[in-house]
Computed example of a mutant assay.
Amino acid sequence: MRFKSIFSLAVLGIMFWSSVAMAQLEARERGRGVYAELFGNGLLYSFNYDQRFEKRLDGLGYKVGLSFLSVEGTGAATFPFGLNYLLGKNGKYFELGLGGTYVVGFDNTNTFASSDDRNFGDGIAGNMIIGYRSEPVDGGFLFRATLTPFFGSGTFWPLYAGVSFGYAF
């Protein structure tokens, strides 16, 4: 399981740096960004891609991400996704968003699983994004600080938060 985690992180790192290199070769025509988020919508951490729908830096966009964590055969993968809206100018934005996080839990030790079912904890939790984003108009270092409340299926975490660091292109 450790090899899979290292391999996944290596692939994500290659994808991240490839997109950074490509961004430097082409003019910035649409607000895009890649970033690592600590806590936030991915629960513990996640790697995310974010893009605006229009050819401008504010307005409506979407984000998709993923994370994976395994400890001694038990773990989870999360897939945060959602729509977000940026309001502001000159690289300083108020960010609002609504989405979900799909969680897939697993137990290869068979400690928690019944019979041959080694998956557990699968489901989607709704979440929101309320925060601040710094994203230079010409691209470069991207920073986000957000409140990310979770809700759904009897779950409500009103004071969950996240911080993100990445690259806008």
Rank of each mutant, 00 (worst) to 15 (best):
E135K: 08
I124G: 03
F68D: 02
S8E: 03
G65Q: 10
Q24L: 09
A10T: 06
G33H: 02
I124W: 12
G162S: 12
T78E: 07
G42F: 09
R118E: 06
S70A: 12
W17R: 07
P149C: 08
G31Q: 09
R118D: 15
A27V: 06
S153R: 04
D58E: 10
K89S: 13
G31F: 02
V71G: 01
G82K: 11
F143Q: 12
A168K: 02
G154E: 00
G88H: 04
Q24C: 02
G121A: 04
F94L: 15
F47D: 05
D138H: 07
G31S: 15
A125K: 15
N41R: 13
F94Y: 11
G82A: 01
A168Q: 08
G139P: 03
R30F: 02
L83K: 02
R52L: 08
K55L: 07
F156R: 04
T148V: 11
S164L: 03
L86W: 09
L96G: 14
E135Y: 01
G154Q: 05
A76I: 04
M15C: 14
A77K: 06
V71Q: 15
G154W: 12
P136H: 09
G121V: 06
S67L: 00
F143G: 11
G73A: 04
V34K: 12
L9V: 08
G73L: 06
R144T: 13
R30Q: 14
L60K: 06
S46H: 00
V163A: 15
G162I: 00
V104A: 05
L25F: 04
D117S: 13
